[in-house]
Design a protein around this nucleic acid. Sequence first.
DNA 1: GCAAAAGTGTTAGGTGTACACCCATGA
DNA 2: TCATGGGTGTACACCTAACACTTTTGC
Lengths: 230, 230
Amino acid sequence: MTSSFYQGQEKYFVSVDCFCIGFKDSRLYVLIAKRKFEPLIGEDSLMGGFVRPDESVDAAASRVLSEYTGIEDVYMEQVGTYGEVERDLADRVISIAYYALIDIESFNEELCLVHNTRWVEINQVGKLVFDHNKILKDTISILEKRATSSPVMFNLLPEKFTLPQLQSLYETIYSTTFDKRNFRKKILDMNILDKKEDKDKSASKRGAFYYTFDTEKYNLFLQKGGHFSL
Amino acid sequence: MTSSFYQGQEKYFVSVDCFCIGFKDSRLYVLIAKRKFEPLIGEDSLMGGFVRPDESVDAAASRVLSEYTGIEDVYMEQVGTYGEVERDLADRVISIAYYALIDIESFNEELCLVHNTRWVEINQVGKLVFDHNKILKDTISILEKRATSSPVMFNLLPEKFTLPQLQSLYETIYSTTFDKRNFRKKILDMNILDKKEDKDKSASKRGAFYYTFDTEKYNLFLQKGGHFSL
DNA sequence: GCAAAAGTGTTAGGTGTACACCCATGA
DNA sequence: TCATGGGTGTACACCTAACACTTTTGC
């Protein structure tokens, strides 16, 4: 029996903790949950759960996200593993943290009631349990780095979005403002977006053209030696 | 007893796997080990070990590195966590991967004999056990990203290094060549190095001035809004 | 004295940045 | 018709990239 090779080694609880990030009204929000079990039941925390024997760690993260939000198939990325001996009050738990980027518009607010979660502006998050505040800090830091060099942030927008929306997103992430013309030139020159024929008229009377992100074009852009940066 | 909260949850073996990277003769090398225990004992693999109850995961990585190389206090960074159900042959093991950057000159080659390790050029590594080849691939990818935006690669050089050495290092990492004058201007303009008065005469008759990386100056540079890039 | 690597400035072209006006539309 | 946000082009400053010769010294 091969499984005896590692006998004598200790085993540990392994959990996943998940940040769900959304963008609305020029603000970044994170979905905060009330802890579902002891210790510290009812306190603010990330969405978390234990890894099950029949699923990979990545799969566990997807499952936990789905359990708390009903959302499937979203962009997720590992932030890191948190393994201090005493990080959990009750017992030693090694936790792998993830963040998920979702289109907040397609998120059903009623699910917040069901799962006891709420959206909190990312810079206004209060005390969370254990080391979750540190995880949040690390996540924001990674997010900012990713934003500069890869188009993952598009996951925060609906599939069809407008350039003013996109600009607003990046202005929020970088806490700055951009010149409209320069921003448009930069993004359009990459030739990774498709312009649609219809407009979004929710924000102005004239309406702004919709665009979609074109993965094929983006791959071409990379092959030609292009580097995404905004 | 608080530790009963999580009863009913599964526990897992948790290991750390560590890449040790060095730079010599214009080449990047990685320290490959012979696996010390079954299954696949004697096969090529990363330096690995199980996390112990009394140490954090990060501490386990440092310990494993030290056990295999005798080196303490080096730069280490988490690559990611590998948690596929069947990734290990014998039993489910969740592994957190790290890379370490060391000054290969200060590494005692005799330790390779003791611990059954050897330096392999990073692009010539053969088949490793389990998913270690994937871990290597991910590590190289992270390394390249880090190199562009932070001065961590200085850890691959001795404390006192020359500009030709530094240039050679970056040329190797990026698989390219730089113009000497442009490279010097760029790095010196950041004002993050200290020029020493003595020279390294091992590579030329004239000798090249030694420099050291100045952490204080680098912090100042960052505070002034500077962004490291080479 | 010569081979071999270290060190040094200038210029042209491209990239990023600043900037102001017209357009389309619903109310 | 007017208020609101969407859309467009140019000029200048800065930065990047290309380029060649002199210096030092051990042999």
